[in-house]
């Protein structure tokens, strides 16, 4: 059986797994975005706070994903929960880092003017600073999503949902007829989905970043 026949044959299962894969990655990215932006907003005015937050987040990123997953299994068991926790933790660094860099990069003259013409503290943050940092935040989310697509494959080890299970069954059935097809379908599926998400990010950037600050 060649790859195309295989995919056509197992389309129902593969498309469901593809959907689950994207869904867990996107949800984890969104959770991480909320947390990361909140952390960024909380610390960006303090150089020491920024340093600690980014140092912590980048340390998390250094941890091998398989090791982190292993450590989460005894605590949270198997399935979606440890997977999402691991994915959110990994997604935090790029988003937090870019939020801090983005907010710190806002021209002080602009925030001074915003205060000077009578914007409240919250308005300065939501209408000016976060809007100006948004391209950087979105770029961080994009990097996170791409990273998570690969890590989510490993999460299938902890019985997490998604295309990783294809790769694992391909591995355990090494030598049997469809082993390679299965692993290939899982791997290529992730690559294709990652490219599609890249396109989605491009569109989001197109529609949410003001023309005045688009690169």
């Amino acid at each position: 059986m060649n790859l195309l026949d295989y995919v056509a044959d197992r389309w129902d299962r593969l498309s469901l797994q593809a959907w689950l894969h994207v869904s867990e990655v996107v949800q984890s990215t969104l959770i991480a975005a909320v947390i990361g932006v909140l952390i960024g907003v909380a610390v960006y005015r303090s150089p020491i706070g920024s340093a600690v937050a980014t140092a912590l987040a980048s340390t998390i990123l250094t941890i091998p994903s398989f090791a982190l997953l292993g450590l989460l299994i005894p605590v949270f068991g198997l399935g979606a929960l440890p997977t999402v926790i691991a994915l959110v933790l990994y997604a935090l660094l790029p988003i937090t880092r870019n939020t801090i860099v983005g907010l710190a990069g806002v021209d002080p003259a602009v925030t001074d003017a915003a205060k000077g013409i009578g914007m409240s503290r919250t308005a300065v943050l939501t209408r000016v600073e976060l809007r100006l940092a948004w391209p950087a935040i979105l770029a961080g989310m994009r990097v996170s999503t791409q990273m998570l697509m690969g890590i989510a494959v490993i999460a299938a080890y902890a019985k997490g949902p998604g295309l990783g299970s294809e790769v694992f069954s391909g591995l355990t059935r090494a030598g049997s007829a469809n082993a390679t097809n299965q692993a290939l379908a899982g791997t290529l599926g992730v690559v294709i989905l990652a490219l599609l998400l890249e396109g989605v990010y491009f569109l989001i950037a197109r529609f949410t970043i003001s023309r005045g600050i688009r690169g």
Partner: peptide, 21 residues
């Protein structure tokens, strides 16, 4: 904030909001 809305404020390099028209 209310005071500043009643006092015009213009600074060096204008401090325009780059994402606003």
């Amino acid at each position: 904030d209310a005071l500043r809305r009643k006092v015009g404020y213009a600074i060096q390099q204008a401090g325009l909001f780059p994402h606003f028209t």
